[in-house]
Design a protein around this nucleic acid. Structure first.
Lengths: 202, 202
DNA sequence: TCATAAAAGCGACAAAAAGTTGCTTTGAGT
DNA sequence: ACTCAAAGCAACTTTTTGTCGCTTTTATGA
């Protein structure tokens, strides 16, 4: 046997066309998962929407979940981060408005579609966890800072996060009425007042 | 033409076997939709789970959505209604605990699975609306009564409902930690305190 | 600029699931 | 006990999924 070929790994080609094709596929995937769900979207329709051949989708992502995960991570970057005004009420309202806006986009809908299936899939769960955590972290910093400067009593910032964003998800997902800045303001007002009122009066 | 046969509609047979078959199919549907979603569950697996032949499913419900809707409505009856203790805090905590429990069942999961698709389907949207409304109505009565007897300031009871149940959905759907009575107590405490604090001080 | 080969396009598949149809069998209601 | 609505059954078509071998394009490195 002529052991001449040292079977080096094929040189990747991440540039140019490949990148273009992959980007188009991921965009199409986000769009279709948003509409039809993880179990519901069809590879062939992804290919058509992306203007790409079916085999290009299958060969890049033989696994359905991997495709969805990568599409989610790709667009997670676009998360609108809100400014730090130094006023926690204002910051939270901005955060909720941005959240509501984000949930309405294909990317946000894809996240929602991934939520329930994540119970059964480790990869989905991890990806989702990473994205949400990142999103929450920025707000956690602001809350802790507000506590630091005495604007709020000591508070579990993840609890506060759940309290304000829970109702947003509910309203947006139900989709029967638009979520306005007034809604956000009312929610934040009640939660902050409630936290101040129930704090241990040192 | 011998117009002898007045083509009367076939006499229905809602009793006995038919009822049994339909019940089994609806139960299997709820179970599988809970796991795999509306787009994901398979007719054949429904049939197997129900111990029934495939055609019995197709002929009873040629339409996928109709099947899901009927399964939802069937089990909506089992909604645990909570007692009226006359103490709004207690009532709300009980409500949230029952809600969290209900969301964990196959029926609750089916509702969640139907939430996003409801955007695109009128039938789903109507069924879902009817079920949720019913659930909220009982609590609305208690809230209004609490306002009436001065336990709470005048408050939009559907807003209050969103405030307390929003976080519950969030925690249960994320599924990373169990939802306890302590969680419910904390949520209701903050929301009620916040509402009292932000009320127009007459 | 040119040669190489990675990766896309293409069409033809096989396999699985979805959905349909005609007939036979069962059993609820009269 | 008879009847016929509805379930069981099997064979079928259609649609969707996923794979394969080959040709064409084109990014990359010499």
């Amino acid at each position: 046997m002529t052991e001449g070929t040292p079977d080096r790994p094929p040189t990747r080609r991440p540039g140019g066309r490949n990148a273009r094709v992959r980007a188009r596929i991921l965009a199409a995937t986000a769009e279709l998962v948003a509409r039809d769900g993880i179990a519901g979207f069809r590879y062939e329709e992804v290919a058509e929407t992306a203007g790409v051949h079916k085999t290009s989708v299958y060969r890049n992502w033989p696994d359905r979940e991997d495709l969805v995960v990568e599409a989610m991570l790709r667009y997670a970057e676009d998360l609108a981060s809100v400014a730090d005004t130094g006023d926690i009420h204002r910051d939270l309202v901005d955060f909720l408005v941005a959240l509501a806006g984000g949930l309405a986009t294909p990317f946000g809908q894809t996240l929602e579609q991934a939520l329930l299936p994540a119970r059964q899939s480790t990869t989905l769960r991890q990806a989702l966890g990473r994205i949400l955590e990142e999103r929450v972290a920025a707000m956690r910093v602001r809350v802790d800072a507000a506590v630091e400067r005495g604007e709020l009593p000591p508070v579990d910032s993840s609890f506060l996060g759940e309290m304000v964003s829970g109702p947003v998800h509910l309203v947006v997902n139900r989709g029967t009425r638009p979520f306005t800045r007034a809604d956000a303001d009312r929610i934040v007002g009640v939660v902050l007042a409630g936290i101040r009122a129930t704090a241990p009066h040192a």
